[in-house]
Design a protein around this nucleic acid. Structure first.
Lengths: 195, 195, 195, 195
DNA sequence: TATGAATGAGCCTTCATTCAT
DNA sequence: TATGAATGAAGGCTCATTCAT
């Protein structure tokens, strides 16, 4: 990793929690300077402008979340285990994996009317997640873990939506009670479809 | 209504879509001046500062959404009808009731780490909504519409979360497909619990 | 004159010598703040941006120079007197009427490749000047002051060009010797065409 | 020519049209980096600072213009031919010899109040040009081409000024009409003084 | 109450330049 | 010599807000 790459990475990693916490509009370049301890012009050596940095930060969040999911699911042997692991990953929205909470919610809700590049990045990551859940269910049906008549497509969409909604509710409430109810419900449904 | 009250109302109604679309941080007082066509100082005659206005705007959104729900549900005679009406109200996130989309998602996700007053307003409105759904189910169970063993508390939370998650997904995707799948699932579940 | 008009006028009059001396690109908004003793944002109450202010300053220079010519020529009774008065007005480029020198030269030469609005303003003022000289010659011929066969069009262009070139040369040299030679030549030519 | 000298030359030749077009203040070191495709630090290997480069660029313009004059006049056999050749060299200000137009006008007018080094360079080049014209007239008088009573000093100054003024006027107007009138006038005067 | 000029902190960004590599 | 990352002052401009009218 060259020096430039290291600095770029430093900026992204330091800026990431700020953007995810205060939003893109709510975070100033000065805020980022402060946490990176870099000099004024330095940010612009590595990023064209605030927008460019914001996009890189979104990519970073997507990558981190993607890897976290991959890791968590990698530890599970069965399809059912993977689904449960996925749910568990989002069980604590008050102390989330990524400071500020789920970047899909944060960046998605800020960008839907204001930044189409970010919206599309989040959209494509959402699709990836959806497809992942679907593929797990499918493989579970293929290997006999899950009942063959389970509608994997419908469930993957609903599970995804429910989790995100649960995260939103828990973060707004400031406690995880809601998320727990939701997780229990989803898990029960998964178990109900075990063969 | 005095002239002052009317001006105040004008500011709030014109500012509301801006805040809900671009966020609080992303909306400037000048943006609001522009759409209200008021003079610079006028805003501060009616609101202490931007924060104060933002809070009033959140209240306004809550009130409007609350009334829309009330109206929609008022038209339905049965408990089941009310639940279905509630779902239908959120069926078109791409062309939402309130410009910018669901204010609980927008203000909730922007404020969770930045503005505790807004967060609490959204939180308490969320509670109201949750309780409303719960009370409908309860009354449905009381009058024999719904099976007595239906867990109303769990379902109301899950329904709320799923709808919000569905709104989020549809807005990020830019189309309502997701929302339709979710609505169908929730409605089926409701019907499955009809007595 | 309203307060706003007074402030606007203050900014223009204070900024004018700066722009005419250091050029538009070479003058910063901070330079202007300093001489006007206004606060940061105040400039933008009266002007959209630096370009807008620069255009107003060019207009101001044009107006002042136009009025100075008008006044000087007004004092002369005859056509010949007017032509000589015009020349006299530009006789001291080292201590010019307008700080920084002839705005046609300064703004014209800076803007020809960079700001078409300024270029056109200067161009149209130049045309006015040209037409003025021509009309003086014509009226002199009409009233019998000048010989009828004098080519007024050619001379007005050449007189204008020679004066501007003389200003340029004197300012570059830092002394008025060149300008004096030129003035003498032009005046002789005018006298040679007296009837 | 060493590599360093070649790079230095490259920078100057690429920077020259920029400075002559947008002015010194209006041209940034980044602009120059862009057209030279050099690395950031490289400029400062060859030039102390922007001022130093600007001075070199002025020298370059002076040298090019000087050589162009020399070449054009070299082709003419008689003194009269040389004077006419000189005038012809400046006949098309809209598509000038040097991109941006006459460097004496451009750098002269920008520098007269801001950069004494540039001003003096232009001043001394102007003197050279003036002396050249004078010497041509003198030699023409010596060899009997021109009338002995022609005031060569006065005419050389006036011719120089008129041409520069004509360039200015044509560039501001965006067409060469003015310049043509002026050239015709000067040429006629030259012919009128032929012996 | 309403106005809009004025404020000055702060915004994002570019500037000329330096310096470690 | 050449590189390009780093610097921090300064650039133009917008911000939320105040205040005299």
């Amino acid at each position: 990793m060259t020096k430039a790459e290291r600095t770029r990475e430093l900026i992204i990693t330091k800026a990431a929690p700020l953007f995810n916490t205060k939003g893109v509009a709510g975070t100033s370049m000065s805020d980022i300077l402060e946490v990176t301890k870099l000099a004024k012009g330095s940010l612009y050596v590595h990023f064209e402008d605030k927008e460019d940095l914001a996009h890189a930060v979104v990519d970073y969040h997507i990558e981190r979340l993607g890897k976290a999911i991959e890791t968590a699911l990698g530890k599970a042997a069965s399809a059912q285990g993977k689904l449960l692991a996925y749910i568990d990953l989002f069980m604590d929205p008050v102390n989330p994996l990524l400071a500020g909470g789920c970047p899909m919610l944060n960046f998605g809700m800020e960008s839907d009317d204001t930044d189409q590049v970010i919206r599309k990045k989040i959209c494509s990551f959402m699709d990836t997640g959806l497809k992942l859940i679907y593929s797990i269910i499918k493989s579970g049906k293929d290997n006999g873990e899950f009942k063959a008549d389970w509608d994997g497509k419908e469930f993957s969409i609903r599970m995804f939506a429910t989790i995100e909604g649960g995260i939103m509710m828990s973060r707004i409430a400031g406690d995880n009670k809601t998320m727990k109810v939701i997780a229990r419900g989803l898990k029960k449904e998964i178990e109900d479809h075990s063969a």
